[in-house]
Each structure stands twice: as C-alpha cells, then as structure tokens.
C-alpha cells in the first residue's frame, strides 16, 4: 500500500512538474531577449527572410497560443520538433544525449559509492586520529572544489601530463566509452564521493555508539563482523537518500563537466539549444531533466521502503 501511495504521489508530481516546466520555459525564454530565427539565419539575413522563418516556426503567433500548442503536444507525449534541426523530433535529438549523461552520472555514482562508502567507514573506524583529521580535511577541500575546476585539474594532470586518459571525446558505444567516461566521472565524483564519505562516517559513528553494537561486542562477535553486519547496513541507509536527492546537482555538474571533456550529453545539447534559442529543445531538456529527478526520487523512496523496516512500520 505504501509503495502504491508513494508511486502515485510521485506520478502526480511529474504531471505538476511537466506543467510548470512547459509553461515556465515558454514564458522565460520569451522574457529574455533573442530571436530564434535570427540565431538560425545569422546577422546578415534580411528582415524579410527572418520574418518568413519566424512565421514558419510559428513564432509570430500569440504566446498563449504557442504555450497551449506545447501543452497539447505534451499531453500526447510529443515534445515537438526542433527549430534548428528542421523537422527533427525533439525526443530523437535529446534521447542520445540523455543516454550519455545518464551513463556518465551512473559511473560517477558508482565511483562515488566505491570511494565514499569504504572511505567513510574507515574514517569512522579511525575516528579522532590524524588519519581521520586529514581525511575530513580532504573531503572538505574536495567539496569546496567546483566540478569544473576539478575537471580542468584532472584534464591537465591525468590526461595531458600523465597521458592516462583521452583529453575528451566519446566513443559512442559501450564498452569503448569506458576509456572516455572515467575521467569526467571522476571529476563529478570529487563532489559526491566526499559527501558520501562524510555521511557514511557520521552514520557509522552513530551506529557504533548504539546498544546493539555494544551488545555484539560484549558477546565477543569479531570486529570485522560487527562492522559488516551491524555498522555498515545502518551507515548505508542515509546514502540512498543522499544520492537520490543529489541527482539534480549531479546533472547540473555534468553539464559543466561534459563541456570540459567534450562529452556529447545533455549539457552540449542544452548549450547549443540556448545559443540558438531552440525553444522546443530547451523545453524538452528541462522537462526530461525534471522528470528524471522526480523518478530518481521515487526510486530513492522505494529503495528506502525496501531496505528500512522502520519506514514500513511507521506507515
């Protein structure tokens, strides 16, 4: 019942988010200056030609009519057609980019978990030592480092100086992408990894102080077993929520990191769409991103329900 209720609530959220994003992007794009037709045709095209293209793109219709048309299409699951890529469906344009960004984000999350969980656990186990102090300082520095800066530093040292990774690009298919994805993913990890490490450390310290851990220790359960069976599961619970609710930050970080490493994800699509005022594509990307984040949150909720008996009990 809880699962159904949560899913329904998130589905409703998707509808509301879709409505707001569609109306919001339509209005916002029209509030900021910039004519899509002029952006496509360039500064040398005559005003008559620009007018003709505006008419062809439907930009000479009243704003309300344009928004209503967008919403009408959206109800039918149609994101519309691009202004720049004439005649091409927005979904077909942003689909591949979404896949790339999702792949990058997934690798970044996996790397963050691989680094952050054991790291955080270890810091908890060596609490109040020099190693703990240095570790916490390191995570603070990394959290303060903007992802684009981390990307540039990695690009310079790992790629250009050490030659351990390509300086950017994308193979286009897996597993060849592995060669290209790990460095940008590492750049994103510099934010999420330390965040996970700090959260796991704190949660592990809380768990270590709990009576059931004391009891296990008193029963003579080996330390490794206590950590694996009692501390780790409790330390992991907040990580699920943490990752879920940082999806948005991860996506916005990916936009920047993709630009530095020339990864053809949603970031480059969005930049191009913004520079050419390709409203349907901008709207499509905003919508897909927003819905993805809501879906990610739904997944987080469901995972929490599945792994945390306390949530099931309280409902």
């Amino acid at each position: 019942m809880l699962v159904v209720r949560t899913t329904f609530a998130r589905a409703l959220q998707i509808v509301i988010v879709g409505l707001f994003v569609t109306v919001g992007t339509n209005l916002l794009v029209r509030l900021v200056p910039g004519d899509p037709a002029r952006a496509i045709l360039g500064e040398k095209a005559s005003p008559e030609v620009v007018r003709a293209l505006r008419h062809e793109l439907g930009l000479d219709q009243p704003v309300i009519q344009q928004i209503a048309r967008s919403l009408g299409r959206l109800v039918q699951g149609d994101l519309g057609t691009s202004f720049g890529y004439r005649g091409q469906e927005v979904a077909s344009l942003i689909g591949p980019g979404l896949g790339v960004t999702a792949g990058l984000a997934a690798v970044a999350i996996a790397l963050s978990l691989v680094v952050g969980v054991p790291g955080g656990l270890w810091l908890a186990l060596v609490r109040r030592t020099e190693a703990d102090l240095i570790g916490r300082l390191g995570t603070t520095v990394l959290l303060a480092l903007p992802s684009f800066m981390a990307a540039l530093i990695l690009l310079y040292f790992v790629s250009l100086k050490l030659g351990l990774a390509p300086a950017g690009g994308w193979a286009g298919s897996w597993p060849e992408n592995a060669r290209y994805v790990w460095l940008p993913a590492l750049a994103l990890t510099t934010y999420l990894g330390p965040l996970i490490a700090r959260t796991v450390r704190q949660a592990a310290l809380d768990a270590i102080g709990q009576p059931f851990v004391e009891a296990a220790r008193a029963r003579g359960v080996p330390r490794r077993r206590i950590v694996a069976c009692h501390v780790l599961p409790n330390a992991l619970l907040p990580v699920i929520t943490l990752v879920g609710f940082n999806a948005g930050i991860l996506v916005s970080g990916a936009v920047i990191v993709e630009t530095v490493f020339a990864v053809p994800g949603l970031g480059s699509r969005l930049l191009q769409a913004m520079s050419t005022r390709d409203l349907p594509v901008m709207q499509g990307i905003a919508l897909v991103t927003a819905v993805s984040i809501v879906l990610f949150n739904l997944l987080t909720d469901l995972l929490n329900i599945a792994v945390d008996p306390r949530i099931r009990r309280t409902h």
């Binding site: 690009l155 790629s159 030659g163 300086a167 950017g168 690009g169 530095v260 020339a262 480059s268 930049l271």
Partner: peptide, 19 residues
Amino acid sequence: FKKIIDPAARLAQVQGGEI
C-alpha cells in the same frame, strides 16, 4: 568533425592527440 564547445577542451584534445 567533432563538436567541442570549449576552446580549452579543443586545445587539450589536439595536444593529447584526440583530434
């Protein structure tokens, strides 16, 4: 032709031999 929006990224890629 590869689309590389950032000029510094283009430079890094030509220096790194990607392009």
